[in-house]
Amino acid sequence: MNQTRVYPLPLLLLFISFAVQAHFQELIPSKDIVSDPNDTEITLDLTFTHPMERGPAMPMGEPVQFGVLGPQGREDLRPSLIQRLQDNQPAYRASYRLKAPGDYIFYLEPAPYWEAGEGRMIVHYTKVVVDGFGGGESWDAPVESTVEIIPLTRPYGLWTGNLFRGLVKYKGQPVPFATVEVEWRNDGSLKPPADAFITQVIKTDAQGVFAYAMPRAGWWGFAALVEGEQPMKGPEGQKVPVELGGLIWVHTRDMQ
């Protein structure tokens, strides 16, 4: 006989909080398109948070990698990182000046994050593409992260409602039927009507490709999730599973 299991209310609320709290590593530039040759500096904010819920932020350790793949090749940007506080938790900021026309792919490998509620470590490899002076043809170049979303739609110059397509790769190979979580970076103008609206969930097809039409202007985060093959050490030295994520951030604007 099947029996329905009834959980105490505090435990049920705990389960619900874990279910809706999707983790997103943000890598947000102050501009996604640089067109003024007299204003070429951008600021990048690095925050580990829940973007649709506007936080709270989680503590970031010192990033393992932070760099840019641009017209002049690959550049290590870790020396430019400045630690700051977001919701009283460590986060980072950096500044960068675009030097030539082309696409600039900023990428981040954060320090592993221990998620006690899930009993696992989380590592989200994250990137964002900034267009420099309309000279870019390399927006789909891979940065060769362990998990990566290769954009099949140019990830800038997008109108609200455009369809974004991406290819999920793990160790360079397409990942069929991978879970991709999608969140809008809430600016405070929207209250989700129910928890199911906080994180959109889609799957890649048999070739590892996904598509999503972005219904609102602003920054959208796409997080492709893969189970790590090798466990990591938890805070007490125990072996724990690892969630690997490949993230990309894209920006949309209303057509006016």
Rank of each mutant, 00 (worst) to 15 (best):
N38P: 03
L108E: 00
G73H: 08
W114A: 01
F66E: 09
D87N: 09
I42W: 00
V64A: 10
L85N: 13
D45R: 14
T126M: 13
G136K: 12
S95M: 02
D76N: 12
L108F: 00
F66W: 01
I82L: 15
M52F: 10
E41T: 14
F133Y: 13
T40G: 02
E41G: 10
P110F: 02
I122T: 10
G102E: 06
K127R: 12
A100L: 05
D76W: 11
G70E: 08
G73K: 02
R74S: 14
E137G: 10
G55L: 15
V128I: 05
P71M: 07
N38H: 08
V123D: 05
D39P: 09
I33H: 03
P79N: 12
I105C: 11
N38Q: 11
E118W: 06
G135R: 11
A116H: 13
K99Y: 01
G119C: 12
V128M: 09
Y104S: 03
A111D: 02
G61A: 03
T43I: 11
P56T: 00
Q72Y: 10
Q72L: 14
P37G: 08
G55R: 02
S80E: 14
R78C: 02
Q86K: 15
K127T: 02
D45I: 15
M58I: 06
D39V: 06
P71G: 09
F48R: 10
M52K: 11
G117L: 15
P79Y: 07
G135I: 10
K127G: 05
R54C: 15
G132Q: 00
G117V: 14
E118A: 05
E137P: 03
A111R: 02
M60Q: 11
G135N: 04
E62A: 13
L77K: 04
P71S: 05
P37D: 08
D76S: 02
Q89D: 13
D39Q: 06
I105S: 11
T40E: 07
Y125E: 13
L81Y: 01
M58P: 01
I33Y: 12
D103N: 04
G136N: 08
L85H: 09
G134V: 08
M121W: 03
T43C: 02
L44A: 05
T126N: 02
G55M: 08
A111L: 09
A116N: 13
F48W: 10
P59N: 14
D39N: 11
L44T: 07
R97G: 08
Q86C: 15
R84P: 14
G132F: 04
F133K: 04
G135W: 02
G135F: 05
G132S: 01
K99W: 10
V68C: 14
A116G: 09
Y96A: 00
D103L: 05
G117T: 07
P110E: 13
P90H: 03
M121I: 06
W114Q: 07
F133H: 09
T126L: 01
D103Y: 07
L108S: 01
R97C: 06
G102Q: 03
V130H: 04
